[in-house]
Design a binder for these strands. Structure first.
Lengths: 332, 332
DNA sequence: CTGTTAGCGCTTTCAA
DNA sequence: TTGAAAGCGCTAACAG
């Protein structure tokens, strides 16, 4: 019952030619006579031949697969990014291997190593690590997302984290806030550092003295954001507004804000999330479309894979404030 | 700069033995003398040798990769399922290829074909298609998730869709509702059919005549759920409660419910989502942990990959009502 | 335009 | 216990 899959040799035999010629036909080589080509094509159809991608990759030293490495697939931001990359990949018939680092540099190393070992054609990476020396001689094109690789000349698609954070704070200040809290990830990543810097920029530009009590850096893995929010709100001199530096923190913070019935507080989230527009008040966000980031990254990668060789570039995905209510609340 | 990666032959040479013996050591074959083994192991370390997974797969006719096929990675339900599968896979050092069907049977076919062609070691599939004849002689173990393959004797991890939906409706009835609307996907999938059936079961058991005006089946791809909700709420004789048959529908419906200021309506969602607990009123759900489904499916697959051969089984992941407010509101 | 030969890196007969 | 040789399915050289 289990017919072994036809091999190229079978096709060649059926078409009364050599494997090489059959191979040529299959790979669209022009230098094959029309009649031979027709015979081979017929044989392919008759036998239901499908080339073996493994053998092909082994021979070519390269795979038709791209790797995508992110913090965590379940993270809504990355889920959207991946969705978009995958869509574009599938349209081109290339498959995608996803892997998560779980925000562990060590794990990132292992995962990337494995992917390289498999000779993926290209890599899209949301790197958690600071050092990419071992990628310097990467045999395949690399596109970084969300955070650029600072020690490597490689393409990246990022947002202006610092500027975006600054925008958020300025937006809140424009609505009268002077005591604005920051809730963000611990500063393992450049992204986190830039966003905090943007927060500080804005305060400084407004001549507001920084108050370290208002800066909460939480462990990304744990659900600490809610605890941090509670601490902030219970301060003797509490903030009148909160800036959440990423979606995960927003998702962690808001339940606490609501539980404490402090929906009067100003709130801006860096990054959108489900229901942000539906809860009351609706959440003002700094929009940085994950789909767009995914698309830009994939486009870049595919263009390199197609042999184009544009200068290495850090592409800035646009960012804008989407006012929805929570960011326009004034201080009490 | 570009040191070619060491091959098994290099290791063998360095250890002054044959490739086969080196191979034996690497694959943990016992029948190798201690001294030879030590030399080979030393060589592996010295050269930084890493076996080529491609060549290995080609030779073995099997890959150390598992495939996961779902509707869409961006779907929060599947994102969580995948996250869990991936976690377990990574722990075992096997990589995961994700692919989406976008709910197109045709695409599912292509995607599965490609995966099989790559000789993946196993497959976890949220199938959108009704026919899996071509999988009957699948060379690798298959575990279906979310919906079982009805024409195939294969493992599956599902929830009791019909019972769960019934639970939801009974819960609403217990709080006084008699006119309960259903919003769910068009009936392409068994899941959708079962959930609608459960809805009907409950009404019938309660002696409530079905009203087809209260049943809205929406196109999963589009954001039709919101429109459907508006239509329902504007009915001359509107429902006092809505049952949303899946997370996507809930995410589509709730913005409309809030926009129309109809948060007085009873609401139960099949499936949890971000902020469900935070919006007002908080959303009562039928909980079916995607993580658990992912874990059960992965466990099953890995146990088969490990050579165990338990009888084919459809595993039912548990389901329960989590009351949070919206499902406990009585009719006006 | 076509075919023969070699070999990608690995594992597996099968004999020593 | 070990090794030589064959070959997984494919494609690149290089003749013809």
């Amino acid at each position: 019952m289990k017919a072994p899959r036809p091999r190229l040799r079978d096709v060649a035999e059926a078409a009364q030619t050599s494997t090489k010629t059959a191979s040529r036909v299959i790979n669209g080589d022009v230098r094959v006579s029309a009649s031979t080509r027709a015979r081979v094509e017929q044989a392919v159809v008759d036998l239901g031949y499908r080339p073996d991608p493994l053998a092909r990759s082994l021979r070519l030293g390269q795979d038709e697969t791209i790797g995508v490495v992110v913090d965590e697939v379940g993270d809504p931001f990355f889920a959207s990014v991946i969705g978009e990359i995958e869509r574009m990949a599938l349209d081109r018939g290339v498959s995608v291997i996803i892997a998560s680092t779980r925000r562990l540099a060590e794990r990132e190393r292992i995962v990337l190593d494995g992917l390289l070992q498999r000779r993926v054609a290209g890599l899209i990476i949301a790197s958690i690590s600071d050092t990419h020396a071992y990628l310097r001689t990467s045999p395949c094109p690399l596109v970084f997302i969300d955070r650029a690789a600072e020690d490597l000349a490689a393409d990246a698609v990022v947002v202006d984290d610092r500027g975006g954070a600054r925008m958020a704070i300025e937006h809140l200040m424009r609505h009268g806030h002077r005591r604005i809290a920051y809730i963000g990830d611990r500063l393992d990543t450049a992204t986190a550092r830039y966003r905090l810097a943007g927060y500080r920029d804005a305060l400084e530009a407004a001549g507001i003295a920084p108050d370290e009590d208002l800066v909460a850096e939480v462990e990304p893995a744990k659900g600490d954001a809610g605890v941090a929010a509670e601490t902030l709100l219970r301060l003797a001199n509490p903030p009148t507004a909160i800036f959440s530096a990423n979606t995960r923190c927003s998702l962690g913070t808001l339940p606490t804000v609501h539980r404490l019935r402090r929906t009067d507080i100003g709130f801006v989230s860096f990054g959108d999330f489900a229901m942000a527009d539906t809860i009351t008040p609706a959440i003002t966000i700094i929009e940085h479309s994950p789909e767009l980031i995914g698309r830009l990254a994939a486009e870049r990668l595919f263009s390199r894979l197609a042999g184009e060789d544009p200068p290495v570039e850090t592409i800035l995905a646009p960012l804008r404030v989407v006012p929805r209510g929570s960011g326009e609340l004034g201080p009490a």
